[in-house]
Design a protein around this nucleic acid. Structure first.
Lengths: 305, 305
DNA sequence: CCATTTGTCTGACTCAAGTCAGAGATCGGT
DNA sequence: ACCGATCTCTGACTTGAGTCAGACAAATGG
C-alpha cells in the first residue's frame, strides 16, 4: 500500500518473489495434498487429469501434460496395475488407446479432489468473511493478470486449423452482437494471422493484410470473453503494428462497427485517429488510421531504461 | 468480478485452486530458476540460505530447513567439494561447524539471486504499468492474508525467552507511542501468554491474567507492525476469550490507553463495553469488559454450517 | 501396395532427494 | 574422571521422476 506516483527502485518484483515464497511454503501443500493416498504425486496428477475428462487418449495426455511418451506409458501401466484405469484401443484409430477410470479409480479421484478442496478450505478458514473476500478477489485478479502475462503471441498459418477456429469465434461473436447478425461473404484470410495462445486455447486473434502503397490493414481483432480486461487487445495490436513496421509499411488502417465500443476505445487509446471510408465493407461504420513512421507511442510494455 | 452479495455455492476455494494451478504452472519456474547454473535445486537453495546469513552453523541450518542431519552433511560436503563454501569448526563449541561462502560461492549465490530476479521481471514485463500495479497490489494483499491465515497461535511459557521477547516488543512500541514514554515497573508476566507465530517470528502476542471472582484480564495485546490489518488482533482476542471461557471465567476485562486508537476500535468491534476503572495502572485511560457467558459473538472465522 | 509417419510400449539408464542406523568426536554436569 | 547428551559425519538404502534409444503395429499419402 505504498504510494506509487514514482516507480520504486525495486520494481515490485520483490513483492512478487516474496509472494512466491509465501505461497509455495504454505500452499504448496495443496499440490502435495494429492499425496498420502498411496499414490505418488505424478500418478495422482495423472489420475486427476483422466478424471477430468473421461475417454482421453494417451496422445492427448502426452500433449497436455508434456510428458515423455515412454514415461507416460509406464505411468498409465502403473495405474492400470492398481486397477484404477482401463485402457482400450480407440476403434477409430487402433494405434491410439483410450483411458477410462474404473469404479475404484473414480472413487480415488474423488477423494483426491476432496482432499485438495479440504486443504483449500482449511487455508481460508481462519479468515473472516471480509478477509476471505479480499483474498479471493486478489487471487482472482492476480490469476487473470498472470495468465495474461504468460500468453504467447504466435504467428500461425492463415489457412491452418488454428486460424480457422479463431476466425470462427470472431464471426460467431459479431453475429451475436450485431442486431442483424454478421454474414460476411467467403473472404480470403488475411496474409498474417497472429494468435494469443494460452494452455492450448486461443485467447485472442488478429490479422494483417497489406493493401499496397505502404499501408497495411488490421483485421479480425478479437479477444475471447474469458480474457477481456487483461490488456490482450492492446498487446496484440502493438504486436501487429510491429510486424507491419518490420514489413516496411508506413501506416495501418482498420475499420470497425460502432457497436463494438470496447474495440473503438482500444483503437483510440492506442493512437488511432478517425479517417474516411476506404472500403465498401457494409458492416464498417468507422475507419481508423495510425502512422507508423513517427514513433510517438512510447512502449508501455517495458519501463524506461 | 462477480457480484458477491450472496455466498456462492463453491466457496471461493475454486478461485483459490485455480490460482494455485496457474501460479505453479507459470511461476513455479521461479523456483526452478535456481536450476541451470550447474547446481541441483536442493544445493542451490542451501547456498542461497547460507548466503543470507554468513557464519551459520550446520545445526542452525538443519533446524531452519528441517533436513536430516546426514543429508545436510552430504549436501554441505558437495558444496565444499565445489569450492563454494568452507566449513570451519566453531571455536566456542568444537562439535559445531560454521559455514562461510567462498568468493566463488558468493558469486554464484549472487547469480542465483539475479536469475530469480530476472524471471520475476520477465513475468511482469509484458504487462502495462497499470496492470503491473494491479498485479503487485493483488499479490501484496494476498501475501499478507495467506500469511495471516497460516499463522499459528500457540501458548508459550510465560517466563520463557519467546514470551520475554514479545513483551519487549510490546513495551518498546508503547514507549515509542506515548508522548512521555512507557516505563512499567517490573511486573510478573501474565499467567497465560499466547503468541501468533509465523516463520519462527512473532507476529502478535497477548496474555491472560485471572483476577479472581470469575474475571480474567486480557493483557499485552500487541500486533507486530508488519502484520497490522490482517485481522490477527481479532483472532488472538477471540482465542484468549476462548481460553478464559475454558478456564471457567465469566467475563474478561482489560485496560488501555486512548492513544491506541486501533486497539480501542478492536475492542469495540469485538463486543467490549466501557466500564469503570478497576486498577491503578497510570497508563490506563479506558477500561473495557465483555461477558463470556452469553455467546453473542457469532464465530466469524467459519461460515455458518 | 509400399514407404513414411504416427502412436504406443519396453528396456536400460540417470539424477535428485531423501531416510535410517550407527560411528566418533566433543561437551556439560556431577 | 566419567556418563549421557549433542553434533556431525559415513555407509547403505529407497523412491520418485524423468530421459533416450529403439521396437512394433496401425494409419496415411502417393
Amino acid at each position: 500500500m505504498t504510494a506509487s506516483t514514482t516507480i520504486p527502485d525495486t520494481p515490485g518484483t520483490a513483492v512478487l518473489r516474496r509472494f512466491n515464497r509465501t505461497w509455495s511454503q504454505r500452499v504448496g501443500v495443496l499440490e502435495d495434498s494429492f499425496l498420502g493416498l498411496g499414490l505418488p504425486l505424478s500418478r495422482a496428477r495423472l489420475l486427476h487429469e483422466v478424471g477430468h475428462d473421461p475417454d482421453v487418449t494417451v496422445r492427448d495426455l502426452r500433449e497436455r501434460l508434456d510428458l515423455d511418451s515412454g514415461y507416460l506409458s509406464r505411468l498409465l501401466r502403473d495405474l492400470e496395475d492398481r486397477k484404477l484405469v482401463v485402457l482400450t484401443p480407440d476403434p477409430a484409430d487402433r494405434r491410439r488407446r483410450r483411458i477410462h477410470l474404473t469404479r475404484s479409480g473414480a472413487r480415488l479421484a474423488a477423494r483426491l479432489e476432496d482432499r485438495s478442496e479440504d486443504l483449500a478450505q482449511r487455508l481460508v478458514d481462519p479468515l473472516t468473511v471480509r478477509q476471505r473476500e479480499r483474498l479471493l478477489a486478489a487471487l482472482g485478479s492476480a490469476d487473470l493478470l498472470v495468465r495474461a502475462a504468460t500468453v504467447h503471441l504466435e504467428r500461425v498459418a492463415p489457412d491452418g486449423p488454428l486460424a480457422a477456429e479463431a476466425m470462427a469465434s470472431y464471426v460467431a461473436e459479431l453475429d451475436a452482437t450485431f442486431p442483424d447478425g454478421f454474414a460476411p461473404g467467403p473472404v480470403a484470410p488475411p496474409e498474417v494471422v497472429v494468435l494469443a495462445r494460452s494452455d492450448g486455447a486461443t485467447a485472442a486473434c488478429g490479422g494483417l493484410q497489406p493493401l499496397g502503397d505502404g499501408t497495411a490493414e488490421v483485421k479480425r481483432m478479437w479477444v475471447s470473453p474469458d480474457w477481456r480486461g487483461a490488456g490482450l487487445g492492446a498487446r496484440l495490436l502493438r504486436h501487429l503494428e510491429g510486424l507491419a513496421r518490420e514489413a516496411g509499411h508506413e501506416r495501418v488502417v482498420l475499420d470497425t462497427n460502432l457497436a463494438l465500443t470496447d474495440a473503438v476505445a482500444l483503437y483510440e487509446r492506442n493512437g488511432y485517429r478517425r479517417t474516411e471510408r476506404y472500403n465498401d465493407n457494409p458492416y464498417a461504420e468507422a475507419f481508423f488510421t495510425k502512422d507508423l513512421t513517427q514513433d510517438l507511442t512510447q512502449d508501455l510494455t517495458s519501463p524506461p531504461a
